[in-house]
Every structure is written in C-alpha cells, then in structure tokens.
Design a protein around this nucleic acid. Structure first.
Lengths: 226, 226
DNA sequence: TTAGTCATGGGATTTTTTCCTGAACTTAAA
DNA sequence: TTTAAGTTCAGGAAAAAATCCCATGACTAA
C-alpha cells in the first residue's frame, strides 16, 4: 500500500480509543487518526477531514451507532464504515449493514484481522468477519429475516408475548386474556420456538431490544432512589 | 518510578488487549505485559509471572470477571487488581471491590487516568474513579443500598442472577459456573424471593432497569421506523 | 369445496422448580 | 476456643410448569 490510510475512530470509551490509536499507529500504514466520542462529532469530523475509513463502535450514548452510520451515509454514500463491536449477534451485523456499514468485526478477533478489515474497507471493499458472514448467509437464505421473527407471531401469540415480556406469569397472562392456562402454555411454546429462544428472560430481552416494551425509562430507577 | 511495572491484561477482546498493550508500552513505565483471555489462564499466568498489577475487564455476558477476581485473591490476597470496565453502575463497582479489586475505572476515562490508576494500584494503593467514588460514598451513607434488593444477593447468587438475566438457561448457568443443576435452581429460587419477582422475564427487566445489562442502545429501534 | 391457518384446550408425559434437609466451610463475635 | 451466623453446595420428594400430541370449531383464501 503506497498512500497511508486516514482513520476516524468513533468509540465512547476514551481508553479504548487510545488503545486502537496506539495499535494502529504501529502498523505503519495508517496516517492521520481522528477521534470522536459520539455520532454528532463524528459527522462533523468526517466532513472536515474526509478520512479513508471510519471505525465505529455500536454502543454509544447520544446517537446510537446505527443512527450515526445512517447519518454518515446520508452525507456521503461512499463513506467507508467498519463496525467494531463487542456483539456477535446477527441482529447487529444485519442492522449495521443495512444502515450502510461496509464491514463488521467483533472485538474478540485477533488484532491482525482488524488490520485486514481496515485495509479492505478503506480501499472500498467490504469485510464481514468470516464466521459471522457464514451465519448470516445461512440466515438470509433461510428467508426469515432476523428481526422479523416477531412478525411471524400470530396476533394472539403476540398478545401473549407482550404480557410475558412484561414479567407476567403464564397464569397471570391466561387470566388477563381469559384463556385456559394450557392455551397460554401452548402459545408460549410456539413463541419460544419461533423466536428461537429458551427462556423468558430472553423473551424480555428481545422485547426490550425491539423496543416493544414501553421501556421503563432509565430514570425510573433514579426516581426510586430519592 | 524506578522499576518498571509488569502487567497482566485480562480481557476477552483480543483487539482491545492489543490496544491496551500498545498504549501502555508508550508510557515507558511498563515492563512485561502478559495477556489472558479468560480467568483460568489469568490465574495461571499470575502464579507464573507474579506481575505487579492485573488489569481486568469484567466482560459482562460471560461473567468471568468477578469470579476471576475472587480466585486471584484467594491465591494471593495482596494481588493488585484494577478493574477496567465499560460499566459505570455502582453495583459493579461495589461487587468488584467486595470481591477484592483494589481499583476501578471505566473505559470512558481519559487514558491518562488509566495510567494514574495503574501506578496507584501497582504500588499497592487503591484507586476508584473519582466520580464513582463520590457516588459510592453517598450511596453507602444513605443506608438504603444501591439497588438494595440486588445488593442483598450473595456473591454467588449475583453470578447466577447475571447469567439468567442474559437469557441463559438454568442448565447453561450451571455448566458455566461448574455447579449442579440443582444448586442453580435453589439459588434461583432465593434470588426470585429476594427480588420479589416471579418470572425470569422480570429478572431480565430488573437487570435492564438497573443497567446491569447493556441492552442495545436506545436508538436502535429508530431504525425500524424507516 | 378444499386446504390452510388460527385459537382454543385436554391428556399424558417430561422437565423444571420448589421446599426441606444437611454437610462443609468461612468469618466474626463471645 | 467455642459459638453462632452466613454462604455455598447439593440430594430427595413433591408440586408446578412446560412440552408434545391431538382434536375441535372458526375463519379465510384459492
């Protein structure tokens, strides 16, 4: 590689940024490294410096990672965004790519893979971590979109889903819906199967992720403390 | 500082380790840097090399963190452990310190603070990130504990709590913690009783509300709107 | 009509959970 | 040192919950 790669690092953890910066510098192929803590400043820095690649973490306060990607892409559709996340769930990969990211790797990887990904994405190619790409391929071919699994629930199943996700017991849900306990049990079994989950905790997590719960906002806890 | 500091890095994210390593090396005060991905190897490396400090990630979903701290401490009570976590919730700080950690900083901090913390802890002092220390002080004095109910969980119960909250099955948790299935069942029963809940979904919701899980960022479902 | 899905639940079986119990261990206090 | 209290671990019996299979009626779309 002849010219050096300019990088924009977006991660809300300053220590992690410092680490990446130090590591990338060692490679010798990286030129300028700009840093942003959140989406807003990332957009600004991007317009200003036009780096060859944006390395972005997904979990950030303010604009989340996905929203940040969308914004960057809407300003420059050719923007090369590499997501570096701690999440290896397909939902994340899928959403990131749909949002416009050109690459996705998890932080579990060897640092060499990071460099590979950086080179690839910076030169306009795509790079999805092999194991994830594999899973994703299968998942897409099996035709059932990842997050759309909830769409697969029948109306009644969705009712049950919501009640359970809010922490209600099977018996409670049955009562609320004026159904037999057995019916709710059966629905629940189907729901779990459709969503590919095993526990009620997962069910609650899925619901939370999809924003299906009127999430008790973060502050409700702070309220309790006073 | 005359002698250099030997460091053992424990973090399951290889890329992050590489970053820390690169950054710490720049400081000039750090000597050997050993790396471990998991608690088991951390214990081994510790016995082998007796580093001056262990920098440990808590890596939430896996939950190796607290247990690893306990193990290290049980082998060498004077072991200097600095937790570097992405979590800024008091529960974590409190748990880590109770487990025997000598310091706690979040990854949001400036890298300079990391160095400060490293120096302090490596020389046998303690260092808790100022803002957290402040909150903690008030919280402890205000008598009503952090999220008092969660605080009532014994260390082991808390381990189980975290795993279940992440959607793991009882059997899965048992395996992860090398416990009998029955033991985990019994812990679970006590947990539910202490928290005053009935279902695993509620357990997940409590964990989410208390910020014990990092769920998807808030804005993720904004994606769905388009 | 026919085929399909959906909602509903019963019955038998399996799995999970509860409740009670006790042992081993640690720690702190008397 | 002895005692007491708390924690961790786990087994057995019993209760509860969930699963699996099946059948019914209702509605819908081709």
């Amino acid at each position: 590689m002849t010219t050096k790669i300019d990088v924009l690092l977006v991660d809300d953890h300053a220590v992690v940024r410092a680490g990446y910066k130090a590591y990338l510098s060692l490679s010798g192929h990286v030129g300028m490294i700009y840093e942003a803590e959140r989406g807003e400043s990332a957009c600004q820095l991007y317009s200003q410096h036009q780096p060859n690649i944006v390395i972005m973490d997904l979990s950030m306060p303010g604009l989340g990672g996905f929203e940040s990607i969308r914004r960057l892409i809407s300003r420059d559709p050719h923007c090369n965004i590499l997501v570096s996340s701690i999440h290896n769930e397909l939902v994340y990969v899928s959403r990131a790519i749909k949002a416009g990211a050109k690459g996705y790797i998890t932080k579990n990887n060897s640092p060499e893979i990071l460099l590979t990904a950086v080179y690839q994405v910076a030169s306009g190619n795509t790079f999805v971590e092999p194991s994830l790409a594999q899973q994703l391929a299968v998942n897409v071919l099996s035709e059932r979109g990842i997050a759309n699994q909830i769409e697969e629930l029948s109306p009644r199943e969705f009712d049950v889903f919501c009640l359970l996700a809010n922490g209600m017991t099977t018996r409670g849900a049955a009562e609320k819906l004026c159904l037999s306990y057995k019916t709710v049990c059966n629905h629940t079994t189907v729901i779990k199967e459709k969503l590919g989950i095993k526990t009620l905790a997962e069910l609650a997590l899925v619901a939370t992720r999809e924003g299906i719960l009127e999430t008790l906002d973060r502050n409700s806890f702070a309220m309790l403390e006073k």
